[in-house]
Amino acid sequence: MTKSTYRSWSGEGKRLGHCFRLCERNVSSPLRLTRNTDLKRINGFCTKPQESPKAPTQSYRHRVPLHKPTDFEKKILLWSGRFKKEEEIPETISFEMLDAAKNKIRVKVSYLMIALTVAGCVYMVIEGKKAAKRHESLTSLNLERKARLREEAAMKAKAD
């Protein structure tokens, strides 16, 4: 692309933008609502700051509701590591403290389940390899069982 071509296109772009702005002034009001300034002016939105609501006359104390833990909840607090001894647990605790302890226990239990699942998979792989060395497979076991059942059925038919 040559410089002269670029100059002519950029000049046309400027002229088109100017024409667009001129046409925009003559467009009906619903199409002009797309501009924020026109939106405020046409619809008469108030731009003055809103009045702040009155402050309450009484001051409220922010009190966290307390909960007396059960024996099981005390064990949860100990298992989660929140307290070292049961004697350290206060008479009442906040619900947030109890929820945090329960969440820690949930995470520990999920880690335990993951570890047990992996250990079970490894155990099954080892047992499967041992069974393969003994030439035991589900197919051979099923064929042996079916043969035994056929023999029993044949003996039962002879006895009748």
Rank of each mutant, 00 (worst) to 15 (best):
T2R: 03
T2S: 06
K3N: 10
T5K: 07
Y6D: 09
S8L: 06
S10Q: 05
K14W: 05
G17R: 05
C19E: 14
R25C: 07
R25F: 08
N26Q: 07
V27K: 06
P30H: 03
P30V: 03
L33V: 08
L33C: 10
T37P: 00
D38W: 04
K40S: 04
I42A: 08
F45P: 00
F45T: 00
K48I: 02
P49S: 08
S52W: 15
A55L: 11
A55S: 09
A55E: 07
T57F: 10
P65D: 01
F72D: 10
L77H: 00
S80W: 02
E86F: 08
E88H: 14
I89G: 02
F95Y: 12
D99T: 13
A100P: 01
V107M: 10
V107N: 06
S110R: 13
Y111A: 09
L112E: 13
I114Y: 13
A115G: 09
T117E: 15
G120Y: 10
V125E: 02
I126W: 00
I126S: 01
K129G: 03
E136F: 12
L138C: 14
T139Y: 15
T139L: 11
T139K: 10
A147L: 03
R148E: 06
A157L: 12
A159R: 07
A159D: 05
A159H: 05
